[in-house]
Write a protein that binds this DNA or RNA. Structure first.
Lengths: 250, 250
DNA sequence: ACAAATGGTCTGACCGTCTGACCGTGCTAG
DNA sequence: CTAGCACGGTCAGACGGTCAGACCATTTGT
């Protein structure tokens, strides 16, 4: 191999610049992966009914054939079962798939660890960077919490509150990641279970009123741009909810 | 819409769990993107000869048809020219391709803010939770950095180092989010530009050797489980790289 | 002048995907 | 009880992206 170039662009080493490998992810494999993840995390709970193929096709904006192919994969993995005309998540997931032994408590712990890692600095940043209208909006939102709020209203409001504060931090990437965490939290069985515990209404009521108070403090720190107070309040709030959720799981 | 569920699995809101969009990146579009990046960063310098289509096809492990399709794109963008039997990078790149309006500095700032938010606590957790084999592995990895490492080797090693440390934190969700951030960083043109700046080799060399030293310190703190030191080193390291990248952009 | 390298063009095949249709079955509202 | 409907199962046809070749014309380098 003659190296006859005289000028400019010798590559130095072997002359070959190396490229990233070309990825060939197929549509159905992506769908399979996404569904599998929802199943493993319990968002699609064992025994629950799967969305219909047509529905999935519409949501993914993809042909039903592709969804079916993905389903075949899950079927043969044993994580999805067909009964009659319906598809269900398998009652007992094969061990091959599920390799997290005592998932639930760990899962909740991880969720809140992640939330703490993100939420405290994000809220702190937001407290510094928010404009006046955002501050007013958050104060307003915090005022709408009552101790005796309907559960589903509380959930909606709770989520809106956190999202609103976060979006004042001015960093779209952080907001996106934080959104993913909130998504998993609000979709998780465990969070559902915590708030819709029929046996323990008084406990639920306490959680709601505590959260209302915490949001009030956060909103205050937010309105005044007090960063240390913001960090303290947020940390306490996340810690308290995490504690309640872990207790609920025992 | 009646809320007739009494027990378990009410999904709360609209009942529809929403999925990530399915990506449909074609082989040729990926090739086009990779070539374009090499051209913009100057790795493929203006006026330099392009590798032959057959050669590219072999490197990408792809049919020549796909390479040609990518080339057509670059050709019509005006960043590649055919002269006689040869392809060359255009002498003067069309402005359309070269300049991102202004978002660049913001983008980099946001990327590193996010990285700092995640990386510092993740590395701290990892320092506490890692097992012996992970500690040994990280020490080993840090030792493989030299001041005069090949750029592409450095990138690979750099990424592996960060990924390896992070995966010792024991929280899959955190690892996943951190992975997304690293992805964006390593895929970004800006990072590419920083490390493959042909005009400024000495600066690049300084960055590489600084990073090598920083990784050494991090590995040490990691090996001994010194959490405060770990936080300090990580914060400094991220800050330094961020600074270098912002400087490069001016 | 000649051989090698390169781009241009074409072909046949394969696969993943889309579209749209039709079938049988089981659930459910009238 | 029955008709309608939602669902999974299946099929046929088309299309685009990709691959592996082959062949040609031209340029390049010796």
């Amino acid at each position: 191999m003659p190296d006859s170039e005289l000028a400019s662009e010798s590559r130095g080493e072997s002359g070959a610049l190396d490229f990233e490998p070309i990825s060939r992810e197929t549509v159905s494999s992506q769908i399979r992966a996404q569904l599998l993840r929802r199943i493993i995390t319990g968002e699609l709970a064992p025994g629950a009914r799967m969305p219909s193929e047509r529905e999935l096709a519409e949501q993914f904006r993809v042909a039903r054939t592709s969804v079916r192919e993905a389903m075949q994969g899950l079927l043969s993995l044993g994580v999805v079962e067909r009964r009659g005309n319906r598809s269900f998540v398998a009652e007992h997931l094969p061990d091959v798939v599920v390799d997290q032994p005592d998932g639930r408590k760990d899962f909740v712990a991880q969720l809140f660890e992640t939330r703490r890692v993100l939420e405290v600095p994000i809220f702190a940043l937001a407290a510094v960077r928010a404009d006046d209208s955002a501050r007013a909006q958050v104060t307003d939102l915090a005022d709408r919490f009552h101790a005796n709020l309907d559960i589903s209203d509380f959930r909606r409001l709770d989520r809106e509150f956190h999202t609103t504060v976060a979006s004042a931090c001015g960093n779209p990437l952080l907001i996106e990641l934080y959104g993913k965490v909130l998504d998993r939290l609000f979709r998780s069985e465990e969070f559902d279970a915590l708030l819709s515990d029929e046996q323990n209404r008084s406990e639920v009521r306490r959680i709601v009123s505590d959260a209302a108070a915490a949001h009030e403090s956060i909103a205050l720190a937010f309105a005044t741009g007090d960063i240390e107070e913001m960090e303290r309040c947020t940390r306490d709030h996340v810690g308290a909810v995490a504690q309640a959720m872990v207790d609920d799981l025992i």
